[in-house]
């Protein structure tokens, strides 16, 4: 996937978001669409971390948890508006990512994996165990954003599904735009350089540690905002959002679609979000199929779905 065609990619994304509802047989599909956009948002963050900077994280659901529970807790305890809570959550995630990022990102490969995994597990444990604050495994209610009512008063009547479809779609487009800008910026190029070789990047004067940290913090903000949107649109949240399986899901979506490609990552998010919906009839086989898909894609399309398919098409065209 060619990253230079920034506006083409954004145009494709916007066109898809606008046109797809035409084919929706029922309002339920708006909900599924919104869920895909939320997942895609955190996955775009991981593309920056894994695809640009070449660092892995098995604990990013921890940041989604921070974002989600900021939205749930801050309005109740401090009377903040949920929209402000999203920002505070993102700021909190960025701060925490900045603090733990420096020591963690000195680690490499599997050591980095276990350290980030440790962070994620700790986060989900705190959210599960602090029953009095978070409701424990049963979860807690999340206040309404209130924007839909404002729009209705202005004469724009949207169903819950339609509103969140538009809202999450908009945030996703902004997220993609930021990521694409980053890709070609000096910072983005430095990140990609250190992905290629840290030693080589250091020799040409790149501050490797701080670029890694930037990628980590930025991806944490993406995950946090995605967590907040998830909490707000469901009106309810459980600590599962911060769980190990959610982290794995996020990384799988990222790699499935194509780790270096933003549109690919969105495709990965769409497929893995739709899979359980399609398989509800065969609920018993869900894990079996998911596991098989993960293995087969990694073996036969090691670069991910979109880049592998694009390479094949290009090869045939020439």
């Amino acid at each position: 996937m060619n990253m230079q065609s920034k506006w083409t990619q954004i145009a494709i994304l916007v066109a898809l978001i606008v046109i797809l509802p035409v084919f929706f047989p029922s309002g339920y599909y708006y909900r599924v669409g919104a869920l895909i956009f939320v997942n895609a948002l955190s996955v775009v963050g991981l593309v920056i971390l894994i695809g640009f900077a070449g660092q892995i994280s098995l604990g990013h659901a921890g940041f989604a948890g921070i974002g989600a529970f900021s939205c749930a807790l801050l309005p109740v305890h401090f009377g903040l508006h949920p929209a402000i809570a999203v920002l505070v959550g993102a700021l909190l995630s960025a701060l925490i990512a900045g603090m733990i990022g420096r020591p963690i990102l000195r680690l490499q490969g599997y050591y980095l994996a276990v350290a980030t995994l440790g962070f994620g597990v700790l986060m989900s444990m705190v959210l599960t165990n602090e029953r009095e604050l978070t409701g424990g495994p049963d979860g807690m209610r999340v206040a309404d954003l209130g924007l839909r009512e404002v729009l209705r008063d202005m004469g724009l009547k949207l169903s819950g599904g339609e509103f969140w479809y538009a809202m999450c779609g908009l945030v996703l487009v902004i997220g993609v735009w930021v990521a694409l800008n980053l890709y070609n910026s000096p910072t983005g190029r430095a990140m990609r350089a250190l992905h290629g070789s840290e030693v080589a990047a250091r020799t040409v004067g790149i501050d490797v540690a701080s670029k890694k940290l930037q990628a980590f913090v930025i991806s944490a903000i993406y995950a946090s905002v995605a967590g907040s949107l998830l909490a707000l649109q469901n009106g309810f949240i459980t600590p599962d959002v911060a769980g190990f399986m959610h982290s794995i899901e996020m990384v799988t979506m990222t790699v499935l679609g194509g780790v270096g490609s933003i549109l690919g990552a969105i495709l990965g998010a769409a497929i893995l979000t739709l899979l359980p919906q399609v398989l509800t009839v065969f609920a018993e086989y869900e894990q079996l199929v998911l596991g098989a898909v993960m293995i087969l894609v990694m073996i036969f399309l090691p670069r991910g779905l979109l880049p592998s398919i694009a390479a094949k098409l290009r090869g045939r065209g020439e």
Binding site: I56, G109, T252, V259, G291, A292, I295, M298
Partner: peptide, 14 residues
């Protein structure tokens, strides 16, 4: 590494 992690986690889910 990331692909291998996903393959073995996929195997575990399978």
């Amino acid at each position: 590494v990331v692909s291998l992690i996903i393959i073995t986690i996929g195997a575990s889910i399978l």
